[in-house]
Amino acid sequence: MSEAADFLYPFLEADEHDAAALLDDLEQSAEAKAHASAALRATTLHESRAAIDEAAADMSDRFNRGGRLLAFGNGGSATDASSIAALFTHPPHGYALAARALADDPSVLTALGNDVGFDLVFSRQVIAHGRAGDIALGYSTSGNSRNLLAAFAEAAGRGLLTIGLAGYDGGDMARSEHVQHCLVVRSDSVHRIQEVQAALGYALWATIQDELTSAIQHG
């Protein structure tokens, strides 16, 4: 078959039998994606340094007064919330701090989703668990998740510190008066955004640990 006619046969690749070329392409693609992630991470951590320090200082202040962290998100971002909650409660070093993820219990999620709607699955838990002095931390790659925006509004009204991690241009979270600190990963790849949001969460945790260590050493 002539190459000129290839476009007429979209399933031509069904005739492929040598995987070596594909494996070479995949390997190069893996390296490119890893480098893109590393570059986005370095840029974001650098540009967000002041915002990280400000958010961490406010979070440390809440933790010092006995506040607890409530973390939430949808899908992969729900697992990011679980990850940061585990990082605070089971730190590899430093001080264990109170943190929970609000998507970890399917009984609570399905009860709320079924009875009051999915837009309220986090805000209803903020009503149940949130106290003035606690921290609400939400992950959304779009910055537009309605159940996060509802939870932030509820949390802000109840005196919780509100922190949002968003992607793209920050979406509605960046513009919300109810999100006191919004850290934005400026990318349009959901995967790269999530990888760097995890790094931002880790940087928040590490900064808080440094502040607590310093506060205890200096009385």
Partner: peptide
């Protein structure tokens, strides 16, 4: 103090090739 999160995230040598074979 150096932030451990600042280290490069690029994959180690050999991991990209293994990712390719794993995906196939």
């Amino acid at each position: 103090m150096a932030n451990p999160a600042d280290r490069s995230l690029a994959v180690d040598p050999g991991v990209a090739g293994e990712l390719a074979r794993s995906a196939l």
